[in-house]
Amino acid sequence: MIIALTASGDGLDARMDSRFGRARRFLLYNLDDGTVRTVDNDEGQRAAQGAGIQAAETIARLGVGGLVTGHCGPNAFRVLRAAGIPVFSTTAATVSEAIDAYRAGTLTRIDAPDVDGHWT
């Protein structure tokens, strides 16, 4: 299964980006073989409005089995729920720490948006 993480850089040592809709980029991590793929979030960063929705659409189209991020607002959460993608919240500093926590089952799955829209 592949999970998506919000990151501010490339590779497993990158820092996590606590924002979802306006995250710098998404790292797709394959839990089965440990490979990593990077997807830029240029459109979300540029969007005047609707960044969370747009990012959630991107994630949904990538066919991931879960999302690990800092926070998730109401519009993005609605799209992710419709797409059936579980959302996990973390305060981990780096992508590899967040993956370790995901594998260990210690991440909190959020069942409602945890910030208002336009949170930065």
Partner: peptide, 23 residues
């Protein structure tokens, strides 16, 4: 509809569309 909308006011992936009228 979702592919057309540049404002992401209507979103769909294999389900009836989600609407975001404020956008």
């Amino acid at each position: 509809c979702a592919r057309l909308c540049q404002y992401h006011a209507i979103v769909s992936f294999g389900t009836p569309p989600l609407l975001f009228p404020e956008l």
